[in-house]
Design a protein around this nucleic acid. Structure first.
Lengths: 197, 197
DNA sequence: GCTTGTTTAAAACAACTGTTTAAATTATGC
DNA sequence: GCATAATTTAAACAGTTGTTTTAAACAAGC
């Protein structure tokens, strides 16, 4: 059918764009490369997405899970909240390292496309910061600077070993997802000097 | 004199390139932009550096302090070593956030230019990893996965609040460098479950 | 079978890319 | 002071960029 063909082409373009943007960056990737990778004609990007910038934006509509966050209770216990964010971010990081790579690049350079990212993921960071702050107020966490603590946690979460750059240094197996989540949680909670459990 | 004039132009180009690469990325920055920012002719980049790629490489020759690392003793106590790396990286991160931004971008995408970065900073990461591993062997640190621990520390160190992206979330003053180093050290050592002192 | 609107393809578009050239300017050695 | 070298300039180079155009192929309704 026409509809499914169209969706198929759009999906093929999105997947190719994600793959190439992750490795070469937005500016380093050409529409022709994306279309060759996807096996479609060059004009398809402009026709289906209305240009390279809109294609980039469409990546975040397609591959960022933002529905689940609106369902969580902002007033849940801080430690539970922090643990939830650690789990969700780590799961997402492991399931779609390409999107993480793209997000990291766009954050590093202050790109005009950053707004699209903000819309989708900033609510989660706000929640995380709120929970960390509340945890300190409740005497569960101990640290001097909230900003430094928050940025340390965010850095721990977003940085990842999937990058080729670190491959020469790392040795261990990473297939056990639950173990990784547990390790990350332990490191972060100890870093925040969590007293409990 | 000739020497100073030449150095002056080369320096102006290097500073402009660093500034623009940090914000727009390597591919997003054109030689014409760099030269306009530096107030020099377009041909100067090819003449003095031999091309855009070599200009990028020259950034790391010019702005990465690699001499001081070779003077440290690899066999020093692990905790002292980790603390040293935290201090040096944090000081450098605060003194030249543009270079950190560039490094982060190049690590995120697996760029062919990554080799230049590796040469200059990988020895330090090797040392850090060695000290973290030794600290665990000596019973000073406690964690399950060395790789996860190392990546967490690296993430904590490299991620930084200077990025425009986080500005909307952060509130505190960051002028006290020593306090920041202390906060980072505390977070990381607690994250590694350091028992001592 | 013809017309309609939609989707694809190849070619072309102007603008921009990194780099080089050839001439002009400046500095250097003696 | 002059010949030589080094530096700077403006113009041009061939190749690539994102996007658009024109025409062909397609499916659906009647």
């Amino acid at each position: 059918m026409t509809m499914t063909d169209e969706t198929d082409i759009k999906t093929k373009i999105l997947l190719s764009a994600k793959k190439l943007f992750a490795v070469q960056g937005f500016d380093g990737t050409t529409i022709r490369q994306i279309c060759e990778e996807a096996g479609v004609n060059i004009a398809m990007v402009s026709y289906h997405f209305g240009g390279k910038d809109n294609l980039f934006g469409a990546l975040f509509e397609a591959f960022i899970p933002n529905a689940q966050l609106s369902s969580v209770d902002p007033n849940m216990p801080p430690v539970i909240g922090v643990k939830l964010v650690i789990r969700e971010v780590t799961l997402y990081r492991l399931s779609d390292p390409q999107m993480i790579s793209i997000i990291q690049q766009e954050i590093s350079m202050n790109s005009p496309r950053i707004q699209k990212i903000r819309e989708h993921v900033m609510p989660m960071w706000r929640l995380l910061r709120k929970w960390i702050a509340e945890g300190r107020e409740h005497g569960l966490f101990q640290f001097r600077s909230l900003d430094t603590a928050f940025m340390s946690v965010a850095g721990t979460l977003l940085f990842h070993r999937h990058q080729e750059y670190w491959k020469v240094l790392l040795e261990e197996d990473t297939s056990d997802v639950e173990a990784t989540i547990e390790d990350m949680t332990e490191y972060i909670l100890h870093g925040l000097q969590y007293s409990g459990e």
